[in-house]
Design a protein around this nucleic acid. Structure first.
Length: 489
RNA sequence: GGUACCCUGGCCGAGUGGUUAGGCAGCGGUCUGCAAAACCGCCUACAGCAGUUCGAAUCUGCUGGGUACCUCCA
């Protein structure tokens, strides 16, 4: 914890020294998924970005409470079907309960996140489980005079709020700009100003997800859930709130406004936003035909893909870019990432086989470790971290190539880089490692390679190549080196 | 139209007022029965134009291109 971390704070638009509210403890809230569809590429980026943040904080000795919500209330289909709830629409079409849909996609989301080797949040609250807290928060804002009831719904009074606090601070807008650039939409007669947003919405007769409230049978506004749940589990002022840049406005802006309105403070010390992923330079969207789910990536079943890509390839690919940059996704870029990832993992495996001798760690390798910490603590610069790790890869490969031994000090430092940094902090698991229960598989492969060796020594290359090709076809990569044959899954 | 951000070598992507990111691909070499891997060497860019500066890819302005968000609902 003696290491100082810099984090870019969207609120100040600068990198700031990270100081926790409570020494040694970090409260982190991240906006989670709306569970009305399969996890897609867009979910992978925040999932991995904040996972690395959590892993880094844990590595540096912090105790972390990581809260990520599940949004399962009142979301609408945004592509068409104006006014219809996203979850309800699917439920009616498929004739199942809304909560069945929610459960189905929550489980699938968890599976996808696990495959990407992300740590589960410490608390995963559901919006539908916190209706009471949300009603209470809406009441509080009403009492403070920053909201009003209208026809069974409760709206946040942006103009009243703007007089005391500035609305738009987080997203870099001003209310005046917004007013001068707005279009007039239909169906908003209940509101005093078109910028007011709903805290509570009266349900229409066909709306089946509904709860009683002092104002009407209805459902909470979207922004309310994150304000209510983050303060419930992390306190009225907590350290970090993260999410995608697409949530900056209006969602986070409204959260900030709700916090200020209810308690007189913003409640969040550091607002972090990850940037978006584009596909072949284009935004991902269902209408553009480039919408891609994580499952399609893992299985390769999408027209823009020529092959499946493993979860760790995706993770590596995402970490090769800084989280605040847009990242362009393409089949070609993924192939490059896959090769780089495999090369790094191979070096990690080779490291364990290097011979050691007595001696201290060299300055070169010590500097790499230092450089890795500087990069990680500088607003989570994972691409530079990876660049340093490739320097370590090269050191391992040279030692292996020359058959030379390295000092025990160097071994310790290199182990640190490959295990503590690459595997633990970056979360890059080695997919080629055979699991504990695969001793049989290992034995069989060794046996086949033994037979192949015999064939080779008898210059029966047809037979030896056949064994190699068959194994290759089954996903076992065979390499002949000076020191014998190696293999990896 | 508004707001924010971006435009780097064949591709992906860091970074920076004056010195080499890194990965992938490519080329030449070493090694090898062949292949793969690895190693050595090569490929040295910063949208365009103008300005500030001893010096800019890095600062400023303009032009062009791109991305996200833009009052309901989520």
């Amino acid at each position: 914890m003696e290491k100082e971390i810099l984090l870019y704070n969207t609120l100040s638009r600068t990198k700031e020294k990270f100081k926790t509210v409570t020494p040694g403890m970090v409260g982190l809230y991240v906006c989670g998924p709306t569970v009305y569809g399969d996890a897609h590429l867009g979910h992978a980026r925040p999932g991995i970005t904040y996972d690395v943040l959590v892993r880094l904080l844990l590595h540096l000795g912090y105790k972390v409470r990581y809260v990520r919500n599940i949004t399962d209330v009142g979301h609408m289909e945004n592509d068409a079907d104006f006014g219809e709830d996203k979850i309800e629409k699917k439920a009616r079409l498929e004739e199942v309960e809304p909560m069945e849909i929610v459960q189905h996609f929550t489980i699938r989301y968890h599976q996808a996140m696990k495959m990407l080797n992300t740590l589960p949040p410490n608390i995963e609250p559901r919006a539908s489980g916190h209706i009471i807290e949300q009603i209470s928060l809406a009441k509080n804002i009403l009492e403070k005079g920053f909201a009003y009831e209208s026809n069974g719904s409760v709206y946040f009074d942006v103009e009243a709020y703007n007089k005391k606090y500035l609305y738009g601070r987080l997203s870099g807008r001003t209310l005046e700009d917004m007013i001068s650039n707005s279009r007039v939409l239909e169906g908003q007669e209940d509101k005093k100003s078109p910028f007011d947003f709903a805290l509570w919405k009266k349900a229409t007769p066909e709306h089946i997800m509904r709860w009683p409230s002092p104002w009407s049978e209805g459902f909470p506004g979207w922004h309310l859930e994150c304000s209510a749940m983050s303060s419930k589990y992390l306190g009225e002022t907590f350290d970090i709130h993260g999410g995608g840049m697409d949530l900056l406005f209006p969602h986070h802006e409204c959260e900030l406004a709700q916090n200020n309105a209810a308690r007189g403070s913003g409640g969040v010390n550091y607002w972090m936003h990850n940037n978006m992923i584009t596909i072949n330079g284009q935004k991902m969207g269902k209408s553009l035909g480039n919408f891609i789910t994580l499952e399609e990536l893992f299985t390769g079943s999408h027209k823009i893909l020529t092959q499946p890509f493993s979860p760790m390839t995706i993770r590596f690919f995402i970490l090769q870019a800084h989280y605040r940059s847009t990242l362009d996704f393409s089949n070609e870029a993924l192939i490059a990432a896959e090769k780089g990832y495999k090369r790094m993992m191979q070096a990690g495996r080779d490291l364990a086989k290097l011979k050691t001798k007595e001696g201290e760690a060299s300055k070169e390798i010590r500097d790499l470790v230092k450089g890795v910490y500087i990069a990680l603590c500088d607003d989570m610069n994972t691409p530079i971290t990876i660049a340093h790790l490739f320097d370590a890869v090269k050191i391992v490969n040279i030692a292996k190539d020359k058959g030379s031994s390295i000092t025990k000090g160097d071994m310790e430092q290199l182990n640190f880089l490959f295990n503590d940094i690459a595997k633990e902090v970056l979360g890059l698991a080695d997919e080629a490692v055979v699991g504990d229960n695969s001793a049989v598989l290992e034995g069989v492969i060794e046996l086949l390679l033994e037979i192949r060796k015999e064939a080779k020594s008898q210059k029966n290359f047809a037979k030896s190549d056949a064994i190699r090709d068959k194994l290759e076809g089954l996903g076992v990569n065979v390499k002949d080196t000076k020191d014998g044959t190696e293999w990896a899954l």
